[in-house]
Amino acid sequence: MRSLARPVRLDFVAPVHRAPLAGAGLCAVGLAAALALGLAFERKLAERSRLEAALAAVAPPRHRAPSPESLQGAAEAAAIERALHIPWTRLLAELEAASRDSTGSVSLLQVEPDPSKQLVRITAEVRTLPDALAYLERLQRSAVLRNPMLESHERRKDDPQHPLRIKLSAEWRT
């Protein structure tokens, strides 16, 4: 194609910097795209708000302040759970074996567990203090108990045979 003279844009009143048609078209397309994007974003925001409102109406609250009743129930449940975790079978079997080893010199009176401390308190009667110490040594060798201690001993004057009542404590192994 033959090349032609270019136009001369010179005017003393009208601006000579004219935007070409393609530029104006591109600008219009850009504006339309921005507008469409804005409308789509607004629609999504509205939809999200609507869904959140529907969800709030249907679902229970996620976090509720605990009531005193529920706290008490939880504590009781925890106590029951701890009590259920006491190894009664192994503990009683070990205490029975220790009594048998002492050849009848120890009479077991009371076994009282404290589940919160994994502690068992034992009340028993023996004839003499060496019998008590022998029983303590036997418990110290036990694989079920840990740190057995003699907490107190008392001679029973009210009993005709004057036995020695002892109280021991030990932790049980889990």
């Binding site: 033959r2 032609l4 003279a5 270019r6 005017d11 009143v13």
Partner: peptide, 27 residues
């Protein structure tokens, strides 16, 4: 309202430029 003010040569050239070869041409 005055929207444009141009000298004659500019207007005449732009009116006829589609007939003018680009090189070594007197208008």
């Amino acid at each position: 309202a005055l929207v444009s003010l141009q000298p004659r040569l500019i207007v005449a050239f732009n009116a006829w430029r589609h007939l003018l070869p680009a090189d070594d041409t007197w208008f």
